[in-house]
Write a protein that binds this DNA or RNA. Sequence first.
DNA 1: CCCTCATTGAGATTATATCTCAATCATAGT
DNA 2: ACTATGATTGAGATATAATCTCAATGAGGG
Lengths: 143, 143
Amino acid sequence: MKTETLQFKSYIEEKGLLFTPERQSVAEEVFSSHDHLDAEKVLKSLRVRGSKVSRATVYRTLDLLVESGLVEKIDLGEDRAAYEHIAGHPHHDHLVCLRCGKVQEFEEPLIEQLQEWACEKASFKATGHSLNIYGYCENCTAK
Amino acid sequence: MKTETLQFKSYIEEKGLLFTPERQSVAEEVFSSHDHLDAEKVLKSLRVRGSKVSRATVYRTLDLLVESGLVEKIDLGEDRAAYEHIAGHPHHDHLVCLRCGKVQEFEEPLIEQLQEWACEKASFKATGHSLNIYGYCENCTAK
DNA sequence: CCCTCATTGAGATTATATCTCAATCATAGT
DNA sequence: ACTATGATTGAGATATAATCTCAATGAGGG
Ligand SMILES: [Mn+2]
Ligand SMILES: [Mn+2]
Ligand SMILES: [Zn+2]
Ligand SMILES: [Zn+2]
């Protein structure tokens, strides 16, 4: 079993919950790629794989994964929420192409630093943030 | 008539559309405060004021206001979209309190600058962005 | 006055996400 | 092994924002 799946198993069991086959399936699906997944995509992939987890359980397990700190829920300004797992993936923000939908990632540590400043100035205690830049990717600009 | 309403009137008419009483009402409502309004709030305020604009028209007019460049649609990570008018309101980003819902505004020109850099590096042509910091406001941290 | 097309409103519809609840399952205690 | 307890699941109902449909109305040009 993958490291991350095992970590999730630990989290679940430490909480006194059960590490069920359904939860394992969803976790494995989420940990299987670095794509930005949404609940429906996860459900569909599981179905294709022959797993018969229900929609409700997918949503519930995604919540647990986020709670565990192994997965992040991100809002890309699209109609549905996206999820990405964190291991081997330092914090980053997103460039969202309004034409083809491509999502690129970028890191800008100084921006993070300045955000902390802004919070201090406002006596605001931050727990997270969302920075999306919308526009057109290189490919789409060419046209 | 307020300057901004007149600008909207011009935009509408230049597009060959009609500046109807309904559109005027919605515009006046949006321009009447610097709050972050959502469609339902606008609708409710109009109803209180005795105006009988339909929900569909509120949504449609908000779209037109955004198109005109006089109003910005913002996603604060809440369940509904917010709108704020731009005149006399330099660009800013938002601190969203997860407890009381308060939304504070902040400006950090250097962040804007760094965003442009990030886009250049990625050959990405930006048209807009959304930066929300989530956490707890001064008031709510105290508790 | 007529024609055309924009506009509107009521309600239907879509789509994401959450909720409900009965059936099932795991586990600990006896 | 039996039972009681509580966790888990799935199917479908529900909530909610936003969009869509379409018939009726209205404005403006010729
Ligand atoms: Mn990402
Ligand atoms: Mn604002
Ligand atoms: Zn693109
Ligand atoms: Zn607060």
